[in-house]
Amino acid sequence: MPELEITKIQELVYELWVGDVMHNDVVTVTPSTPLSNLREILRDNRISGTPVVENGRLVGIISMEDFIKWLCEGSPGCAVADRMSRNVIAVCADEPLIQAINKLERLGFGRLPVIKRGTKEVVGILTKGDSIAGLLKKLDIDYRQAETRHPRSSHIFEDIVADRSSLIFEYDVAGGGDVERGGASASGLKTSLMRLGIDPQTVRRAAIATYEAEMNLMFFTNGGLITAIIESDSIRLEVTDDGPGIENVDQAMRPGFSTAPDWVRELGFGAGMGLYNIKTCADRMRLDSTVGVGTRLEVEILVGGKREVIRDNATVTA
């Protein structure tokens, strides 16, 4: 998909700032630096030019070219100030990289000093190489995010030859209220569903339902199992545990009803919205519970649902 890639790079160029890709450790000289010293400075730092700075402010730029010209003239004794160009074009650190690249291109320069807006203080130097390296780095970072956008397994259901096929993912959830671990199942399911190329809205619904079910297992049971059965047109979740069970299912379904103790509330839970949230995400929902035996929750979410706005139309069978 070459077109897509170009768009992506264009986007990145607009998102990057000069300050993000410039070299901070810029080598500078002062106007009074003797030109005879310049050769070592350029050679030792492997650079072909350097900004001239006086009292922290940018006053000029001197390049290898200026130096060679000076050599050709028989190296008369003089200082940087006598040979530098005073009409310096610089870029600001908070300028978009794209502007700086245009400047480099238009002027045919290999480098531009970077100054702080307003103060003219030299804070870095930008080369063509930096710009490219910055883009590559950014591409690399974004690759991991892009991965879920270009799913690798999105054709799996078409590739498999069968009258019916389904994928089954299982997640073990520990009980005992270990808040740090909670949500790992929902997160894992979300990532997996994105990789299957399922639309983000459907994925979010499945992830939210899974998360709420996971938190219920974590806070109220000794642990349980979440099974996700994925077919080409639906996601089914089965959540089971072996106790303690819900005393009054109708009451538990009511938004705002919660049996959570204060410590759970202070963690941001116990708003009494858990089962209700699951219901708003589901196309079908079934909750069976027997006190002392356990609870079984079944949720069905249709893939590619038309709901722009989530409607409250799940069928609940208790």
């Binding site: 939210i208 839970f269 708003a271 009494g272 919205m273 858990g274 949230n277 989530i310």
Partner: peptide, 10 residues
């Protein structure tokens, strides 16, 4: 400040 409330938003 409540997780389930956050999750009720779209």
């Amino acid at each position: 400040d409540l997780i389930s409330d956050m999750l009720s938003f779209r």
